[in-house]
Amino acid sequence: MGIRFVVLVNKQGQTRLAQYYCDHMTVSERRALEAEIVRKCLARTDHQCSFVEHRNYKIVYRRYASLFFLVGVDNDENELAILEFIHLLVETLDRHFGNVCELDIMLHLEKAHFILEEMVMNGCIVETNKSSILAPIQLMDKAS
């Protein structure tokens, strides 16, 4: 089924963006899961591989400066492709915000969500063309 969740955390492990697909969890379950995977992923060093198995998920993670992008996927998902997808997400955010940083995402949380929504829906990839992804968001900015 592909992507189960996308979580963005900072170096301190605070969640900055989170979207879950398919299986809904209660707020406390989600908090617990985030805490566990953050602890596992942040403890790893750079030369270790970018995949961590946790419960029935596989977490593919990638670090950009002080931000960690964690993507939970099914066991039969292509891990390398997900790494590439994370990069695409970061590039898209970059193009929109211009050198995106943690604060941009916090203060424009809804926009970050809109961008992610244009890219992933119900765990499937919607679009990989950055211009197409950003078109509706830019249109909206212009209108307001």
Binding site: T15, R16, L17, A18, V27, S28, R30, R31, E34, M106, L109, E110, H113
Partner: peptide, 13 residues
């Protein structure tokens, strides 16, 4: 609602 989404992300009901 935007505030609520932020609060939700922090893990509050």
């Amino acid at each position: 609602l935007a505030k609520l989404m932020f609060i939700h992300m922090l893990g509050y009901p």
